[in-house]
Design a protein around this nucleic acid. Structure first.
Length: 299
DNA sequence: CGGTTATGTATAG
DNA sequence: TATACCTAACCGC
């Protein structure tokens, strides 16, 4: 589920299992062979996320920039020290699947990664485990300066919690007359929010998705920023997006059933958890937008 | 097993 | 606004 929380978890996963390790880098699919050769045999010295992009930093000062896009996913496997180091446990999910493969956790001796299955764009192999990347939107080797430029082109990441970031978000969202639903998806306004967090954050703040950014009250924009940071941080900890408050769920089960996890996302026609009005959906700039026409009517 | 859908973005027109 | 990208989960048959 590659919204920002998943990428933050992935960066942590790479630090957990590969930091300080020399990596064999290859492109079984062949499409990334030239890039892989530039970092093959180097040591991973850093892994960080900004929004939906991940940057793997290598000992020769080159950086692997990966954007999973809609379909991209990493899978991992290795011996007990590898899986034991991973802080991403089960359950498996898109963007951060873990796979034991044929040489996984149950084997006494790790003999290497399994034969690549499907179109593996990049394979990283250490002495204790491996990672495969499939279907990314972006995958390229760049310089540290180019990586800094890529981050510089993005808006603030709510998961970084830097003091100046909220003000920067307020400045950027207030500078545009585009609907706030559109602005929340623009990675130059804030980095990491996707279609689920957009819909859910706007509902939680009872904001009309079509309200122009320039007409959003700064106090409410600040509350929106704070709430996005909170639910995304929850997502980092939980490994899934759960935005409903316990009192708004119809079912107290733990873990929260998927059908109870959201207020409006993918709930077209279902009753709003607060007022009972049918949730509506419309396409906006090619993406589906969900909202409650009653709770989010004003502002 | 085939059709549908997806948490995203770049590019063309 | 349309489409290409080109993977995998999900659902109905």
């Amino acid at each position: 589920m590659p919204e920002g929380h998943s990428v933050t978890r992935l960066a942590r996963q790479f630090r957990d299992v590969f930091l300080g390790k020399r990596l064999q880098v290859s492109s079984p699919q062949g499409r990334f062979s030239a890039g892989a050769a530039r970092i093959d045999g180097e040591t991973l010295v850093g892994a960080r996320a900004h929004g939906k992009q991940m940057f793997l930093e290598f000992s020769n000062d080159l950086v692997l920039r990966v954007h999973l896009g809609l379909y991209g996913a990493w899978s991992f496997g290795g011996n007990e020290s590898f899986t034991g180091a991973s802080s991403i446990g089960a359950p498996r999910r898109i963007g951060e699947r873990e796979a034991a493969g044929g040489n996984g956790v149950s084997d006494a001796v790790y003999t290497g990664p399994p034969p690549p299955v499907g179109a593996v764009r990049v394979r990283l192999v250490s002495d204790s485990g491996w990672a495969d990347l499939r279907g990314p939107t972006a995958c390229e080797v760049i310089t540290a300066a180019e990586a800094a430029a890529a981050v510089g082109g993005l808006g603030p990441d709510p998961l970084h919690a830097r003091p100046a970031d909220q003000a920067e978000f307020l400045r950027r969202i207030g500078a545009s007359s585009s609907p706030i639903a559109t602005l929340l998806m623009k990675q130059e306004v804030l980095a990491g929010v996707g279609n689920v967090y957009r819909a859910e954050a706007l509902f939680r703040q009872r904001l009309n998705p079509l309200l122009p950014g320039s007409r959003l009250d700064p106090g409410r924009a600040a509350a929106l920023w704070q709430d996005i940071a909170k639910i995304m941080l929850d997502g980092v900890h939980e490994g899934r997006i759960v935005t409903t408050l316990p009192e708004d769920r119809d079912d107290d089960a733990v873990p929260v059933p998927q059908t109870e996890a959201h207020y409006v996302y993918k709930r077209t026609g279902l009753p709003c958890r607060i007022c009972g009005t049918a949730v509506v959906m419309a396409e906006h700039a090619g993406r589906k937008l969900y909202w409650c026409p009653n709770c989010q009517a004003a502002d």
